[in-house]
Structures are given as structure tokens and as C-alpha cells.
């Protein structure tokens, strides 16, 4: 039967195909470039731009461009450009570290809940529900207020309150995938539970988890900025949110003192969100043509 000679079509390995889709999207690529640029600015920038963000270097409220300070000075006469350059390091570091913490907790809880079901799922999902009801910012405020504001405590606080969405997504993916025949087939051919969870199901559940985690990085950065805005940041490091919070009473005199750090947050988080959208398009099989 000639019509049954099944077609031969060679396609690239799926992962390589995904990278292609991602890089072909201009917005995702732009986002990635901005994100890399901001990271370089934060981690390497201070070597070249040596003004200390805590030094009162000039008159307060010196407008941008005047007197050699590109973005002006704040209410104490500190250089805003230096604050933004140094703040980038804190924002990026806390953003990624806190998102990793969330991702770790969320994937762990979601995976075990989804895989084992029964009372294990019941207990784990009750905990997740609870963290979804808890106003996260307020809870993080309480943690930081009680345990002191260091970069570590802030990272842990953000990470510990933001994992619920990852847990929900992981669980629902696990619930769906564990019923699929290939998981049953793998079980029938002798795979252990841990093998099934981490080597069989998790790779197939990865796409939405990765996208959600990317979004969490952005959310963690705004979260940190919010805490800092309220005065709950590590006093030993500069943070964008803290610059806005400290200057906000003087907005009548110097609008730029809140505008520039705000733009820094906005652009960074926007870049992450573009990367997230790009990942979504690349990883979502619905959008990819067969």
C-alpha cells in the first residue's frame, strides 16, 4: 500500500527548535540583552564608576546633568547614578535568589502532592492554599521587622512567601502527566518513584514551571523594591526601592529623584517579562506548528 509508506521527515531535536523560536522573537531577544546589560552594570559597573553611593558628594537636589552628575543628586547630595548602578546588583541578586528559593519549595511541594495524591496531597495543598490567602507583602514585612533587615533575611522572606503559584502549577502538571500512558509504561517497565518524579514527569512538566519561575524573578524584584520603599531594606546596601522611598517626601523639589530609580526597576522587570513571554512562546507546544 503505497499510501501507507509513512513519511520521513527529519526535524531538529526539540530543545534546539525551542531555542530557535526564542531567538527569532525580537522582543524576547531585546529583553535578554537588557537583562544582561543591567546585570553587567550592577556587577562590573562599580569598578568603572567609582563614586560611593553613600557618599555625600555634592549639594542636595542638584538636577540631572548639572555639575557633572548625570542623574543629579538626592536630598543628601548623594549621586543618583551611582545609587542606580549599585542598586542593580542587589535587585538582580535578590530577584534571582528569591525566585530560586520559591521555585525549589514550589516544585518540591507541587511534585510530591501531585505524584502521591491522597492525604499527602491534601496536607501539602492546604499549606499552599494558606500561603495563597496570606497577604505576602505584609507577611514578609513581619518577617523582616522581626528578624532584621539583611539581604539574606529579605531573600528568604520573599522566597518563602512566593512559592504558592509554582506549587499549584507543578501539581496540576503532575496530576495531568502522571496519568499519561508513557508514565504508566515507565512504571510498568520497572522505574522507581524518584525516577518517575524527577526523570520522567518533571522534564515534561518543565515548560510552564520555567515560564512561571521567570515571572517570579520579576515579581521578586518589585517585591524587594516594595519592601525597600517601606524602609525594610538592608541598610548596608543601596536598593532602588529604598532610593524612591527615601526621596518621596521631596518630590515637589526634585521629581527626578524618584523617576530614575523607578525607570530602572521598570525596565529591568519589563525585560524579564519579555524573556518570560519569549520562553512561553518557545516552550508552549500549542503555539508551535507540528
Amino acid at each position: 500500500m503505497s499510501h501507507l509508506d509513512e513519511q520521513e521527515e527529519i526535524q531538529a531535536k526539540p530543545s534546539r527548535e525551542m531555542v530557535g523560536v526564542f531567538l527569532r522573537s525580537y522582543s524576547a531577544l531585546t529583553g535578554l540583552i537588557i537583562l544582561i546589560a543591567v546585570s553587567i552594570m550592577g556587577f562590573i559597573g562599580p569598578i568603572f564608576y567609582t563614586i560611593d553611593p553613600f557618599d555625600m558628594v555634592w549639594m542636595p537636589f542638584s538636577p540631572p546633568g548639572a555639575d557633572g552628575y548625570l542623574l543629579g543628586t538626592d536630598y543628601l547630595g548623594r549621586d543618583i547614578l551611582s545609587q542606580i548602578i549599585n542598586g542593580a546588583r542587589v535587585s538582580i541578586a535578590i530577584g534571582f535568589a528569591a525566585a530560586s528559593v520559591s521555585c525549589f519549595i514550589g516544585v518540591g511541594i507541587g511534585a510530591f502532592a501531585g505524584f502521591y495524591g491522597g492525604w499527602i496531597e491534601e496536607i501539602l495543598m492546604r499549606i499552599t492554599e494558606f500561603f495563597q490567602v496570606l497577604p505576602t507583602l505584609l507577611f514578609a514585612m513581619v518577617i523582616v521587622a522581626l528578624f532584621g533587615s539583611s539581604v539574606l533575611s529579605i531573600t528568604v522572606a520573599i522566597g518563602a512567601v512566593s512559592w504558592a503559584s509554582v506549587a499549584r502549577i507543578t501539581r496540576s502538571e503532575f496530576l495531568r502527566i502522571k496519568e499519561l500512558d508513557f508514565v504508566q509504561a515507565s512504571k510498568a517497565s520497572g522505574s522507581s518513584d524518584l525516577n518517575l518524579i524527577f526523570l520522567v514527569i518533571l522534564p515534561n512538566a518543565a515548560a510552564p514551571i520555567i515560564v512561571q519561575s521567570a515571572l517570579l524573578v520579576g515579581a521578586a524584584i518589585t517585591f524587594e523594591a516594595g519592601l525597600a520603599f517601606l524602609g525594610l531594606s538592608d541598610p548596608n546596601v543601596v536598593s532602588w526601592g529604598q532610593v524612591i522611598g527615601a526621596n518621596r517626601t521631596y518630590i515637589l523639589d526634585a521629581t527626578y529623584t524618584v523617576t530614575f530609580p523607578g525607570i530602572a526597576i521598570f525596565v529591568t522587570v519589563l525585560a524579564i517579562s519579555l524573556v518570560g513571554d519569549g520562553l512561553n512562546d518557545a516552550l508552549n507546544p500549542k503555539l508551535r506548528s507540528r
Partner: peptide, 22 residues
């Protein structure tokens, strides 16, 4: 049971779901 499973194996219905896409 794992050892016994080597003597008795299974083929599933849905050819789209029975193989690991990854």
C-alpha cells in the same frame, strides 16, 4: 513486583501519549 514485571509487560492505547516526548 519489579522483578515480576519483567515477565509481563504492557502496550497502551494512545500512541501519542505512550511515549515520552522528551
Amino acid at each position: 513486583v519489579r522483578d515480576a514485571r519483567s515477565k509481563i509487560q504492557m502496550v497502551f492505547q494512545d500512541p501519542f501519549a505512550s511515549l515520552n516526548p522528551q
